[in-house]
């Protein structure tokens, strides 16, 4: 090799090495910055939320209006959010579980149809929740229904339905065909295979799907903005408007009164803690039940 080309070779090698070192540093930096942002978010919520958190905050409804009243707490929003999310999640579960089972057992031989169905569900998942909210509100107006708990439950359940179905579907998809065939060979019908074998096999996955949907429904503000409204009271029937945690944060944070603002920070802390618990418990479920799966 000539001297010049050898020099060129080394130069190229060195520059590639320098490039690698530079990019490895930026890569590590990007991963660290993501961790840092999460810590920053949790820190800022804790820092503002902890001083305003008290027993009264968690056990009382706002007194004298949620925007102006200085007394009281956020019990109305906590209870309202739990009612709404429980209702929406169970409604989505009742519709979603059979659909996911149907796709994977009854239609298991029609791969193309199932795949296009998955595609549509993914598209539905991408629709912004504000569109569901605005559309749901228009339909409610058309039928003369006022902002109420039941309206919110229906709209939110439509919004989380694609997530629920796809999450259960992923679990069913990854379980083996051998299990279904073994069940058929013992003479069970499709219904029995679906609800007695597959459902048990995918139980951890179903629990994860339910937790995921619950987290989505408790945190979404745009879809409940018009459909459930806001109130200071704890709802006693399905037709009453209901306060939710995200809206309680959103409305009260814009108030000029510091006491009202502190209610918003407390609500933000409560909501974050709920989401953290959901996220951690779904992780634990997955790890704990993974070993109980039957593999062929």
């Amino acid at each position: 090799m000539k001297r010049g080309s050898l020099n060129k070779y080394y130069l190229r090698k060195i520059s590639l090495k320098a490039e690698e070192i530079f990019f490895r540093a930026t890569m590590l930096f990007s991963s660290c910055i993501i961790i840092f942002i999460l810590l920053l978010i949790i820190y800022s919520i804790l820092q503002k939320g902890l001083p305003s958190l008290s027993i009264d905050m968690l056990t009382q409804t706002p007194k004298g209006g949620f925007y102006f009243g200085k007394e009281g707490g956020i019990l109305n929003a906590i209870i309202g959010s739990i009612y709404l999310s429980l209702g929406a999640t169970s409604l989505a579960f009742i519709i979603g579980l059979p659909v996911a089972l149907f796709m994977n057992i009854w239609l298991s031989h029609k791969k193309k149809l199932v795949n296009s169905f998955r595609f549509i569900l993914d598209l539905l998942w991408g629709i912004p929740s504000i569109v569901y909210g605005a559309f749901g509100f228009t339909v409610m107006i058309y039928f003369g229904i006022k902002a109420s708990l039941i309206g919110g439950i229906v709209v939110v359940s439509l919004f989380i339905l694609p997530i629920m179905i796809r999450a259960i579907d992923e679990g069913l998809k990854s379980s083996s065909v051998g299990l279904i065939e073994a069940s058929y060979s013992l003479g069970s019908t499709k219904t029995e295979t679906a609800f007695k074998v597959m459902m048990k096999q995918c139980l951890p996955c179903i629990i994860t799907a339910v937790l995921l949907s619950f987290g989505r429904s408790i945190g979404d503000a745009a879809s409940v903005l018009f459909t459930t409204g806001f109130t200071d009271h704890i709802p006693t029937s399905l037709t009453q408007p209901t306060a939710t945690l995200p809206l309680s944060i959103f409305f009260q944070l814009s108030s000029p009164i510091p006491e009202v603002k502190s209610r918003a920070y407390a609500a933000a802390l409560v909501l974050t803690v709920i989401i953290l618990i959901i996220s951690l418990s779904s992780r634990l479920f997955t790890i704990k039940y993974k070993k109980n799966r039957i593999n062929f």
Partner: peptide, 22 residues
């Protein structure tokens, strides 16, 4: 990183809004 991504994905948008304001 896996739980960090999960939690970031699960945090409601209103929490991001509060963080943005703070």
């Amino acid at each position: 990183m896996q739980p960090v991504i999960d939690i970031l994905a699960g945090l409601p948008s209103v929490i991001y809004g509060v963080w943005g304001i703070i």
